[in-house]
Structure formats: C-alpha cells, structure tokens
Design a protein around this nucleic acid. Sequence first.
DNA 1: GGCCAGGACACCA
DNA 2: TGGTGTCATGGC
Length: 230
Amino acid sequence: MDIIPPVEDISERLLFIYDRLLQCYGAQHWWPADGDFEIVVGAILTQMTTWSNVEKAIDNLKSHNLLSPAALYQIPTSEIAEEIYSTGFYKSKARKIKAFVTWLHDYYNDSLDGLFTLPVLSLREILLSVYGIGEETADSIILYAARKPVFVIDAYTRRIMQRIGINPGGDSYHSFQALFMGNLPVNEKTYNEYHALFVRHGKERCRARPDCAGCCLSAICSHRNSIVSG
DNA sequence: GGCCAGGACACCA
DNA sequence: TGGTGTCATGGC
C-alpha cells in the first residue's frame, strides 16, 4: 500500500497522483497523430468534441490529401467545413483552421519548423493572437507538437482536481496551470504523460463512475478536502 | 428525446 | 472583468 502524502505537500501529492495513474493505465504515448500539423488540426477540432468525432474528420482530410498547411490554405473555408462536419461546430472550426493556415502561410511560409523555434512564452503569446486558438489549444500545440514544457489544463484536469479536493485557489486557467508548473519539475515528457493520463482517467472513470467506485485515486478522492495553495 | 463532449469568441453590463 | 449566448454533430 502506498503512503499517501499529506494534503499540505502539493508537490508530493501531485507526484503520487501521477504515479497512481501511470500504474493504472500505463504510458499513453500522446498525442495520437501522424505529424505535428495533424496535432495542430486535431487540437482545434477537439474543442468541445469527443475524439472519435475528430478522428473521422482527420481521416476525411487525409483521404482527400488535405492535411497539410498548403492544401488547407488553398481550398475555400466551406470545403474545409464539409470535411470536418463530424466534429460539430464545423463552420466555426473551419474558420479557425483557415485562420491558422493563412497566418502560417503569411508569416512562416506554411512551415511549423520556424514557428516552433520560438521560446515557450513567445510561442504561446503568438499562438494566442491567432483567431480560434485559446489557452488550452495553444498549450496543446506547444506541448504535443512543439514538444516544449507547458502543462495543459482541460475539462478533465479541472474535474479530477475538484474531485480529489485540490483547489488551486481560483478557477482560472492560469491558477490551475500555475499549480502544476509550480509544484512539478519542469519536464515536457512528464507534462505530456500527466495530461494524457488525466484524459484517459477522466474518460474511463470520472465520467463513467461519478461515485469514484473502483477508482485508482479513490484513496484521495474525497470530495471533502480542500487544499489552498499560494 | 435529452444530455454531454479534451473551447473559443462576441457581446453586454 | 465576469457572465451569458452561440456554434452543432454524434454517441449513449
């Protein structure tokens, strides 16, 4: 039986959660995609959407040889919308994809390589300036495509943290991100695996079993403890 | 038939 | 700055 770290020790408790999830599910090897540009497109398409619907859209784009910055730049937004219909919000997501490839064409010659040489903070700031890319999408691109260390906060992360009673002291994206990045070693591979494990756990456990029965985090899944970190 | 899903943006007070 | 409405298909 593992020793459960005290609630005051955020770092140890975050590592405890990570170890438990890794034991339970094994390494996830994220992001599930062929290539960096597919990760970018997938990050936009998965906004408020289940991954199975995203896969259909990705397959459509691939089968029509459209999954490249240059190809998507050349076709009209309406055609992108037809290809990604299965993801829902297809008109607005087509606009977002079009905005990104247009921006990449204008400033980086259709290539992610130059973009990804920027330091993390600059890269994040510039991605956030592109229409349709918010904090979670930007961080997913930075972590999984650019392979730089930022912690991705998504709905699963928030839900699981709430369930195990760790409160970052605010509900903002930044407060959750600061909790992880301020209490874990700065490491891209750890951030990658941690977020992927959260998604896996969120899908398999928290959504399927709201009562936490049989949960590998049940030892700390109290709904009661509230940790306030500075 | 109702509810929810790995957000982001526009608009308003 | 924070709250609310909108975008929308597919699976359960």
